[in-house]
Amino acid sequence: MAKSAISTPMPTVAHLMGAPLSQLVDELRVDIEESSITDAGFTGTAVIAGGEVIIWLPPNRPEVERDLMTRHLIADAFGVDGMPPLPEPYRTTDITRITDDVNRAIREVQA
């Protein structure tokens, strides 16, 4: 897992899994926004910018899915290892490396 670029203290797995979600969001200064993406395969994304974490979740999903994905996306954003695996069909993907590869390829084409 990549080192966190966020200055907020690192949460533990026990705290991420056991604390009320509203408490986690407040303590870790995470913003939750509604995405306009409604594709069934999209379950959310975490964006880290300027030391802040913004979780984008699709609209009209069951509360249990929103809770589950928010906790895992927070763990990913903070670089917390040891989270229990997501149940099928859910998963998270770190696109940082993919984005870096795409940006590098674009620069090479433009050169």
Rank of each mutant, 00 (worst) to 15 (best):
R66N: 12
F42P: 03
R61P: 07
P62H: 04
T92C: 06
V30G: 01
T38S: 11
A75R: 05
P85G: 10
Q23P: 08
Y90P: 03
R61Q: 10
A19L: 08
Q23I: 15
A111K: 14
E52C: 10
T12A: 03
G41I: 13
G41R: 11
L57E: 03
V109N: 12
G18Q: 11
L16H: 01
A5W: 08
T93F: 10
I54M: 15
V64D: 14
T43C: 12
R104Q: 09
P62C: 09
T38Q: 14
I55F: 06
E27A: 10
T93K: 11
R91T: 14
I48R: 05
V80F: 06
A2Q: 12
T38R: 13
K3Q: 10
G51Q: 05
D94W: 12
Q23D: 15
F78V: 00
I98V: 11
A14C: 11
T93Y: 10
T45N: 15
P62S: 09
V25G: 01
A111R: 14
T96P: 05
L21T: 08
I37R: 06
E52Y: 09
V13I: 02
R71A: 02
V13M: 03
A2D: 11
E88R: 12
G51Y: 04
H72D: 05
L57M: 08
H15Q: 13
F78L: 02
A14F: 11
I48H: 00
P58R: 00
M17F: 07
F78S: 00
V30I: 10
G50D: 07
V80M: 05
S4E: 03
D94A: 15
E108I: 06
T38H: 09
V64C: 11
V30C: 08
I6M: 05
S7N: 08
G44M: 02
P84L: 07
I106A: 13
T43N: 10
L21G: 02
F78T: 00
S35F: 01
P59Y: 05
T45V: 15
V30M: 08
T12C: 03
G82K: 06
N103E: 15
